[in-house]
Amino acid sequence: MRRTNRIFTILVFIFLYIPMIVLAVASFNKGKDIAVFQGFTLNQYKELFRDDNLLRLLGNSVIIAVLSMTIATVLGTVAAVGIHSMRGKLRSAVMGLTNIPMTNPDIVTGVSLALLFAFVGVLLRINAVLGFWTLLIAHITFSLPYVILNVMPKLAQMDPNLTEAALDLGCTPVQAFFKVVLHEIMPGIVSGALMAFTMSLDDFVISYFVTGSGFVTLPVEIYSYTKKPIQPKVYAMFTLMFVAILLLMVTMNLLQARDNSRRKKLRKREAYR
């Protein structure tokens, strides 16, 4: 039973990684057709680093991702502390509000924000309202719930006596937050921020509706390639991004594993005492 399941799991992983292999192989392809491999070359990578336009689009995506992640993480963490102290109806109302962008399909979120911006644009008589700011607002909006939902469980796990102790020892509430609470909920903040960053970097659907011609991110540009044939250097770019994310994840994994084993040792040592 376990053995068939192992084979099945391996097959599913192959299924998940087939397109990635296709893209990586295509990035080394001499020919332009992704389906026919005509020989090995590194030219696509050279082309990529000569293409200012593509690098600028990647820069746009990264700027939006970093800004929206930072703002959403700060706003969301502070909000989570507030929600944590709420009870009853108020709390479920705020959590309901948090769940709206989570349950709403991306296309509805995108359309609703686009309509809001168009509406405001008409009111304020601005012609080209869609651009950097609307994109940033939209990304912050869909990132916020991820931060809240990652931080809330950590606040719930935290021993409330810790804050009390800090206050008894003479901390002001603000000091208690920065010296005690923040440290305790840090893993939640980090994973929330990471999710916000990757969601923002990869978001296409919402960005597509709220962006104008002035400020375009990478996914939106790739979508416009449906009309013209895709340039192979795009595959090179994504192969590099894939490797970068892979390295990042492996490093994080190793750090976490080391941290865990160190904790286990500490616990053992304490048990001996």
Binding site: G76, G82, L97, P101, N104, S112, T141, L144
Partner: peptide
């Protein structure tokens, strides 16, 4: 402490 979520609630009302 619940007022800390004020800016967030305002943001979500405005943009969702």
């Amino acid at each position: 402490r619940k007022w800390l979520s004020g800016p967030y609630v305002l943001w979500m009302v405005l943009f969702t």
